[in-house]
């Protein structure tokens, strides 16, 4: 188990390095000199030279890469080209907003998705199941930014129940929670549908398994059979899907943060890309990639923890 954990962490680090190299390569592959693109057509050569130097683009490529990695290892992600603020500070400011958005969205997905999936199984083939099937598929099909706009219109603009923009007042938890409801729903609703379908399929397969028949043959109450014998097993394959889905949750957070004007990594990265603010782009990608890898690695370890068969296969 420990060697498996180390192996997974090592693999995650390798992927992280490859991603960073690929990102660095992109800076040079994008047509046009970053400094002149960023400054526009009327920039003076002196200004261009200044910006090129500030971005570190006047150095040979290998030196740039070396600098980037060694600085990163020291916890220095460089400074914002425009505001000269350290990138790390900006990310540290934005990341919690995105993280809480992702977690709450995932929470919706887990609670509603698993519940709807289990209900579908219990009422399999009856109208409840069919209605839930249609609802789940529509949840999956509608893009999160469309959901975001509709939620915004209905609950913020028409009904005035919830705030339309921002992340709530600092220090005011109630306003922060209120500001979180609509964006997290917009991000998570597709996952509600997706998880409901997955849990349903996975449970139906398990409900037909011999061990479920055994449990019934011993007269165990149906509730116990569904929740202890079937759901526990059905959860295992969904964990890795949820972890993978975190990537898409982060990317839909980019849109949703824009719609709701929430501060967060999404807002930070879109702004930085438009302004060719490379240190900020690189730093944001590094942090999101690292976070994503962390979650996937954690999911793999969690699966090994939950499924004794996987655990034993690893021990061999």
């Amino acid at each position: 188990m420990l060697s498996y954990a180390l192996q997974r962490v090592g693999l995650a680090l390798v992927i992280l390095i490859v991603v960073m190299l690929a990102m660095y390569g992109m800076v040079f592959l994008v047509p046009g000199d970053p400094a002149s693109v960023a400054l526009g057509p009327r920039a003076t050569p002196a200004l261009k030279a200044l910006l090129t130097e500030r971005m570190g683009l006047d150095q040979p490529v290998l030196v740039q890469i070396w600098r980037f990695f060694s600085h990163t290892l020291q916890g220095d992600l460089g400074v914002d080209v425009w505001s000269k603020r350290p990138v790390l500070d900006q990310i540290a400011e934005a990341f919690p907003h995105t993280l809480i958005l992702g977690i709450v969205a995932l929470g919706w997905a887990l609670v509603l998705g698993i519940a709807l999936g289990v209900i579908s199984v219990v009422y399999q083939g009856r109208w409840v199941d069919r209605v839930l099937g249609v609802v789940s598929v529509s949840f999956i099909s509608v893009p999160s930014f469309v959901v975001a706009i509709y939620l915004l219109l209905i609950f913020a603009v028409w009904l005035h129940w919830l705030p339309a923009i921002g992340a709530g007042k600092p220090g005011d938890v109630t306003s922060q929670i209120k500001a979180l409801i609509l964006p997290s729903l917009a991000v998570g609703i597709g996952w509600v549908g997706y998880l409901a379908r997955m849990v349903r399929a996975s449970m139906l397969e398990i409900m037909g398994a011999n061990h479920v028949r055994t449990a019934r043959a011993f007269g165990l109450p149906e509730r116990r059979v569904v929740l202890r014998y079937a759901l526990r097993l059905a959860i295992v394959p969904t964990i890795s899907v949820i972890a993978m889905g975190l990537g898409s949750i982060l990317s839909s957070a980019v849109f949703v943060e824009t719609v709701f004007s929430r501060p967060g990594l999404g807002t930070l990265i879109t702004g930085a890309v438009f302004k060719r603010n490379y240190p900020v782009v690189m730093g944001t990608v590094l942090v999101t990639t690292a976070f994503y890898l962390l979650v996937i690695t954690a999911a793999d370890l969690l699966i090994a923890k939950l499924d004794p068969r996987v655990r034993d296969a690893l021990a061999d």
Partner: peptide, 14 residues
């Protein structure tokens, strides 16, 4: 009841 296939008669995570 005793079932035919002992391989699948028990829940793998219990």
């Amino acid at each position: 009841m005793i079932f035919q296939d002992p391989m699948t008669a028990f829940n793998p995570v219990l």
